[in-house]
């Protein structure tokens, strides 16, 4: 049901662009104003969110330890999974950000012969996530051809590599296949696995459908219902050089694609997609596991901490506590209301 809500939401968004840019002829709004606003919301919102996290204190030393801590010299330390130096932490972060090491450690609980609990390795989530994120990265880099003239060699090089099998015309991008397959997998695991379906919310399904919608509109524009790509480049180049133009004859499919991308950008800082910035600020990953060697000082200034002592708490709730028969330090005064 939650998945259906999200799906309808994405369809509704596509319909807004379809009606707005198509029937009502508001190409300026959907082609220029909304995308520009979306980029602004994305960059500013992202920074505000990260600064907000940076301002919150980490009161405890809470890194997750996934290996042997630094100990006696003859006990071999796992310096990446339980780092005790800044270098080790940096190594751990690099592996986490680039290779999703904590997903690699994903396990699956099962009942063996119906009675014995077993923990097995489960790499599919890691593989799907890795495929999805890297395909998305390549796709974003490929799209930079619409924002640079002449197109830098790096971008056209990636483009050539991506279409290296030279299947059909326009040549098939391999990342398109990988991307759709990975997003579909990430969606299906939420629907098919009962435990994951139980914890999945609208905000889990919505980005998946939104991204899938973006992928499908993009794929349709490239392979099936062609958009005039030169006009599209006129629009995108105008957008980033502030000489805004709406060229004639770009299909409405392009505006749907652009609107869904804009929604994704605006939704980004408000949602769990912020894990893009959050992964760098995770205390469980970026702290040094040397709590026995160095004392972690809680950086809170005590005078700023708002606390509520037990006598104050009892004063506030004494009547209710007495009513339900909870013991109180100070009895309820006779004649009190």
């Amino acid at each position: 049901m939650k998945a259906l809500y999200s799906l309808f939401l994405v369809f509704a968004l596509a319909a807004i662009a379809l009606v707005g840019a198509g029937a009502l002829g508001m190409e300026h709004v959907f082609g220029l104003y909304i995308p520009f606003l979306a980029v602004a919301v994305f960059v500013v919102g992202f920074c505000l969110k990260v600064v907000g996290w940076g301002r919150s204190a980490v009161p405890f030393c809470i890194p997750t330890t996934c290996g042997q801590q630094e100990s006696l010299p003859w006990i071999k330390q796992n310096s990446i999974d339980n780092p005790s130096t800044t270098g080790g932490v940096v190594m751990r972060m690099i592996l986490e950000v680039l290779l999703f090491r904590s997903l690699f450690r994903n396990t699956k609980v099962d009942l063996h012969k119906g009675t014995r609990v077993t923990y097995g390795s489960s790499k599919w989530l890691w593989l799907g996530a890795l495929a999805f994120h890297y395909a998305f990265l390549v796709i974003v880099i490929r799209h930079m051809r619409f924002f640079a003239e002449p197109v830098p060699g790096l971008i056209s090089g990636i483009e050539t590599l991506d279409s290296i099998l030279q299947i059909g015309a326009p040549t098939l991008y391999l990342t398109d296949l990988v991307f759709v397959a990975a997003v579909t997998y990430l969606f299906l695991r939420r629907v098919v696995v009962p435990q994951i379906r139980y914890i999945s919310q609208v905000q889990d399904y919505f980005p998946l459908f939104l991204i899938l919608g973006i992928a499908f509109t993009g794929i349709f524009m490239r392979y099936f219902v062609k958009s005039d790509i030169i006009s599209v480049k006129e629009l995108t180049m105008g957008l980033v050089t502030f000489s805004w133009v709406i060229p004639e004859g770009i299909g409405v499919l392009f505006y749907i694609h652009l609107f869904l991308v804009s929604v994704l950008l605006m939704y980004f800082p408000l949602s769990k997609l912020m894990h893009m910035g959050g992964v760098f600020l995770s205390p469980t990953r970026n702290m040094n596991c040397a709590s026995r060697k160095f004392r972690h000082i809680n950086p809170w200034k005590f005078e700023n901490v708002q606390y509520h002592t037990y006598p104050e708490y009892e004063d506030e709730f004494r009547e209710k506590m007495v009513e339900t028969g909870l013991p109180v330090d100070k009895p309820l005064e006779e004649g009190a209301e």
Binding site: C47, V51, M144, A148, E234, V240
Partner: peptide, 29 residues
Amino acid sequence: KILTGLAVFIIFMTYPFWNNIGSAAYVRP
């Protein structure tokens, strides 16, 4: 550290904007 990270983020994300500063307006071939 955080401000350096954000600066890198902003530089990457605004590539389409700063990359075109000073270059001639795009004309249809």
